[in-house]
């Protein structure tokens, strides 16, 4: 019977180890997914600041249209739009464009722009050397700003891609404590209503 117990304990031990392992694996999927997305350029997640020591090759025979769209996240009152809606660029040529943002509210607010690129197959070939999306943006009440983006399209971009669309969604990242204090009054009045 003790032999029996020992083998039961062994099975339970292995099973529990697998359970713990698979639970950890569930969480490991999060970074793994990011690695996958970055390596294969899936899901349109553009990478962080591009840094390269080699000068990118220019290809003046090809023209790629880069299109910009901007939208606000939920309950984001800022005015936010690209200054130009599209530019035509040659691969390898650094290009600067601006996005306009204005905080029309009476409070200072902080925002974060989240980029996404389509078609996602182009993500690997779209390099940002400077972008407002690398940092949070803080605007005082009523303040407006032109935010720069500098990018280079890689000459290695697949031939079938003619147009890239870069989308930014702007999310409110203001300190929740300050905002909720301001909103508290709204909610109470609303509940009473």
């Amino acid at each position: 019977m003790t032999e029996q117990r020992r083998s039961n304990a062994r099975v339970v031990g292995w099973c529990l180890a697998s359970v713990v392992g698979m639970f950890a694996f569930g969480f490991a999927l999060v970074p793994l997914y990011d690695v996958f997305c970055e390596a294969l350029g899936i899901n349109g997640k553009t990478q962080g600041r591009y840094e390269s020591t080699t000068v990118l090759e220019r290809d003046d025979n090809r023209t790629i249209t880069v299109q910009f769209v901007a939208q606000n996240g939920p309950e984001m009152p800022w005015e936010f739009r690209p200054v130009v809606t599209s530019v035509k660029v040659h691969p390898g040529e650094p290009t600067t464009v601006n996005f306009f943002a204005r905080n029309p509210t009476g409070l200072a607010m902080t925002a974060q722009a989240v980029p996404s690129l389509s078609p996602s197959e182009g993500t690997l070939y779209f390099h940002k050397t400077e972008c407002f999306c690398f940092n949070q943006q803080k605007l005082e009440a009523g303040e407006s700003v032109n935010m720069p983006l500098v990018f280079i399209v890689d000459a290695a971009i697949p031939a079938e891609i003619h147009k890239l669309t870069l989308s930014y969604t702007l999310y409110d990242q203001s300190d929740p404590a300050a905002v909720s204090a301001a909103e508290q009054t709204q909610i109470t009045t609303n509940d009473n209503g």
Partner: peptide, 26 residues
């Protein structure tokens, strides 16, 4: 409701900016 019959600015604020944490959109 108080929102609809009292302070105009509060009414504007709810409609224009929504109420976060509730289904009321901006």
């Amino acid at each position: 409701s108080r929102i609809a019959i009292e302070d105009m600015n509060a009414h504007l604020d709810v409609v224009v900016n929504g109420v976060s944490g509730s289904p009321m959109q901006a």
